[in-house]
Simulated scan of single mutants.
Amino acid sequence: MQNSKKITLTKPWQEYGFHGVTLFFAMLAALLLIAILFSLFIGSWQSLRHFGMAFLWTAEWDPVQEQYAALIPMVGTLLSSLIALLIAIPVSLGIAIFLTELAPPWLKHPIGLAVEMLAAIPSIIYGMWGLFVFVPLFQQHIQPYLIEILGQTPLIGVLFSGVPLGMGLFTAGLVLAIMSIPFIASVMRDVFAVVPPILKESAYALGATTWEVVWKIMLPYTKTGVVGGIMLGLGRALGETMAVTFVIGNSFRLPDSIFSSTTSIASAIANEFNEAGGLQKSALMEIGLTLFLITTLVLICSRLMINRMLKKEGKKR
């Protein structure tokens, strides 16, 4: 005769208590978000009243004359993040494909562990590495070569013009790409791993190559997860502070090439907040509020994109 365990029914007060605790934790996250937004709004109120909406499209930052605007930090943030994504997405895709489809079993775990360890390195270490390794390398070798070769190219030549300073948008974008790759690659690897083996085996049986399996089977099946991973990397790039502060140059001027020295929202706040007061402090709070709204907009756009993909997928089926 088999032993049977006695099942203890949950009492109503335990169920209500469990529901209340989980509801409290869920509401706590929403309340924290509202509190952060409210604090930024209150801190930036003086700047909002003084500069109005022109704060967003004016390119002047002069503490002496008390003239502040968000255009230069916004452009620096968006361009450095764009450069980071252009580098990180193909590299992350290659890592994820290799780990899921091509790597021998004995190599998967070490490389996967190395990718995960990259995510654990503090951002200040990336910044110091970029400053003492990348900046001299770019200044002496890479940037002069690119300026000489690509600087005279029609249309795109303006992007590779200027003085090889080592610091600037390109260096910041590259450091951000290296910091974003572990997050994007890990998500891509995990979503590729959940693709049903029968789909891939059927494609291979029909004579498909690995590239065709990835492009026609794996990516369509996991596109929502891939987009989520890319947005996770973009969020890391948009809000990064210390690493960008080391290598972007921290100059309040609009960039005229990818090698130009400029600043980002996070680096501007990190550099000036400690000594700021009055209107300058309020302006820094406002560009912090602007970064908050940019990341929120990116999140909304990513959700709309994913929902649109899911709707199209449902219509195809």
Rank of each mutant, 00 (worst) to 15 (best):
S264Q: 02
L206R: 07
A35H: 13
L155N: 07
K6D: 09
I269S: 00
T58F: 00
T263C: 03
S302K: 12
M27F: 15
V194P: 02
E101L: 06
L284E: 04
Q280H: 12
E286S: 08
D62A: 07
A59L: 04
L137V: 14
G130I: 10
F134N: 12
F183E: 05
P136F: 13
G157H: 05
F98L: 07
Y16V: 04
G43K: 03
S39C: 12
G112L: 01
L131E: 08
G76L: 02
V133W: 11
N3M: 03
E201D: 03
I156R: 07
F170L: 15
T171A: 15
N307W: 11
F51Y: 15
R317Q: 12
P197Y: 01
E286K: 05
A237P: 11
K311R: 15
Q280E: 11
M231C: 12
T58V: 04
L85A: 01
P12G: 00
D190E: 09
Y145S: 14
I230Q: 03
A243R: 10
W45D: 08
P255G: 12
Q67R: 14
L238S: 09
L93A: 13
S80F: 05
A268T: 13
I287K: 00
F38Y: 15
G127I: 08
L93S: 12
E60H: 01
S44Q: 04
S39H: 13
E60Y: 02
F55I: 02
F246L: 12
D190Q: 04
I294P: 07
A88E: 00
L118I: 02
P164R: 07
